[in-house]
Amino acid sequence: MRWLTEYLETVDLRSKPSGCSQHPLVKLKKLINQLREGGAIRVVTDERVIPVKTIEVIAKKKGLSLEIVSREGNVVEVYLKK
């Protein structure tokens, strides 16, 4: 089992990508694929750009639990846990 200090990486889906491979969604997918049992990722997104629904679909497909930690306007903070 992995623990907090090793895993709590943040992916900010609001950041502007400099290229396709740098797109935060690509980064998020890579991190999710690397996630082991007990691992977790904090995701910040803007619902107008990448809706939480998208993250929910990815999380469900990968068997991750999802907690919406905070919401301020369109900005949502999500905690994904394997």
Partner: peptide, 15 residues
């Protein structure tokens, strides 16, 4: 938009 609602965490919890 997601229909999920975040729990009312205090600023201290979030910090």
């Amino acid at each position: 938009m997601s229909t999920r609602i975040p729990l009312p965490y205090s600023p201290k919890v979030l910090e």
